[in-house]
């Protein structure tokens, strides 16, 4: 095994460049070193001006999403040895405006997320003193997968619909809405329906499936969307046949 590998890193400093340029760095190639370790090596030893986000380095905080050799990845969970002999091309996540270097602007997602009301909605909130809302392991299993989203944005980066239609609510937000819709403690499906069933909601999705392929946590947002399509369609037909039986 060679003892070094080349990182080709996208640089974008708005004061210096009008569009990103690639810069190469030689970093040690060691067992267990993630792409992120390569980047922190660059920052600590070679060029302190390189900017990128990272925090937990254990694949749970969702900060360090990047495009590695064309694929959306968590850079803390993508290993240099898998790309040997290199070079490894590191770019910001696609489909997002770039603030600087590898740092993207996720304001769009942060604005869309509350629109799907990802919190428990109930007609009556029981007092805490009455104890927990009962939920069997099977009921938990209904939504658990969709509760695993770490908001890392890899799915948005992989989604061609999002790149063509920026108004698309997107995979993670819809999956999170479904996470609550399928939670036995929640009664808010009706409140989420208008946003989810809008043209910018589930119907914008054409089932490319790349979101689920990109997801590092096995959430399967594509599945969540397809399931909701069936729910929404059934619901619309019911409304058409029995207009008075709302809810």
């Amino acid at each position: 095994m060679a003892d070094e590998i080349t990182l080709e890193v996208a640089r974008y400093r708005p004061e210096l460049e009008s569009e990103p340029v690639m810069e190469s760095f030689q970093v040690p190639l060691r067992e267990h070193w993630a792409v992120l370790d390569g980047l922190t090596y660059v920052k600590d030893q070679l060029d302190g001006t390189l900017s990128f986000r990272w925090s937990c380095r254990m694949g749970i905080c969702g900060s360090c999403g990047m495009t590695v050799n064309g694929e959306p990845q968590l850079s803390c969970a993508t290993f240099l040895t898998d790309y040997a002999p290199g070079p490894v091309r590191v770019e910001p996540l696609r489909n997002f405006p770039v603030i600087r270097d590898l740092v993207i602007d996720i304001d769009d997602f942060m604005t869309k997320l509350p629109e799907v009301k990802p919190w428990i909605i109930r007609d009556v909130h029981s007092p805490v003193e009455e104890g927990e809302y009962l939920q069997t392991p099977q009921e938990l299993d209904e939504y658990q997968q969709f509760s695993m989203c770490i908001n890392c944005m890899l799915c948005y980066s992989a989604c061609p619909v999002y790149s063509l239609e920026p108004d698309f609510i997107g995979p993670a937000a819809i999956a999170l809405a479904q996470r609550y819709n399928l939670d036995s403690r929640d009664e808010g499906a009706e409140e989420r329906r208008a946003v989810l069933s809008s043209p910018e909601g589930i119907w914008a999705c054409t089932f490319v499936g790349e979101c689920s392929a990109a997801c590092p946590k096995g959430v399967d947002p594509a599945g969540a969307i397809q399931r909701y399509k069936l729910t929404a369609a059934t619901r619309s037909i019911k409304d058409l046949l029995m207009p008075r039986s709302r809810r």
Binding site: V128, E132, Q135, P137, E139, R185
Partner: peptide, 20 residues
Amino acid sequence: RELLRLEHWGCPWSRQPDGR
């Protein structure tokens, strides 16, 4: 009380077969 609060807010606590 605080953990129950979290439960009411939707935290997916692991459960016993009877739902508790």
